[in-house]
Amino acid sequence: MNANTPALAVSGASFSYGREPALEQITFELAPGEAVALIGPNGSGKSTLLKGILGLIPRVGGTVEVLGEATAAAGTVGYLPQTEELDPQFPITLEQVVMMGRYRSLGWLRLPSKRDREAVARALDTVGLTARAKSRFGELSGGQQKRGLLARALVSGPRLLLLDEPFNGLDPENRDALIGTVERLKARGVALLVSTHDLELARAVCEEVLLLNGSQVAFGPRDRVLTLDNVQRTFQGVGVEMDEHTVVLPGHEGH
């Protein structure tokens, strides 16, 4: 691996839950310190692609390489799942949730050391939740839970982060905090793949854009890819207006 090795290289990849491919022919690269926005309507395969890269959904064709390796080493990839599936009554503190991100590199039977606890404190600091470390996870607001899971994804010091709809349902304060965190991570050389249906946000934090609609519509630098024509092809049937500054989609909760 050298300095030019992409953090993530996906080539001709298809993913499938069963017989029918869920997502076909995906090809793109992500360089260290850059962010790719994954944009498409609901059901277009954004989560499928993230899970496919992680190996949670079988890949039926093509290749996926993380830092030049076919199998990512433990702790090199961080993942922020959608929070809706988690039990709010689960008796666990934010700090304990973040510590889970260290378990894999810690190994079986080993208890967290001082180093692990320091890493957890740093990750909480990065997402701005140090004051809530001892709070029960389920008592946090939706936005804070997302930031907490982001801290869990960060705590093993990954080179690649996969974020599934991190900005969904966030209030402006949490949204700004998250944008700040993403910028800091990029400055540290972390590569990010961020699924969102917020085009404005994609423009704010991502250099490149991958448009999805069951298959790949377009990939490239955001200003070249986010054309009215491309966006219309991605959100087929949904009226799209576009001017010099913003893309407004019906049902899109923008600012």
Partner: peptide, 22 residues
């Protein structure tokens, strides 16, 4: 006991657990 912390992780967040490579 040998798998306790992993069992708790799995109980809390199945997707995150699998994504971590378990």
């Amino acid at each position: 006991l040998v798998t306790l912390k992993e069992q708790v992780f799995r109980a809390f967040d199945h997707t995150g657990f699998t994504a971590a490579g378990y």
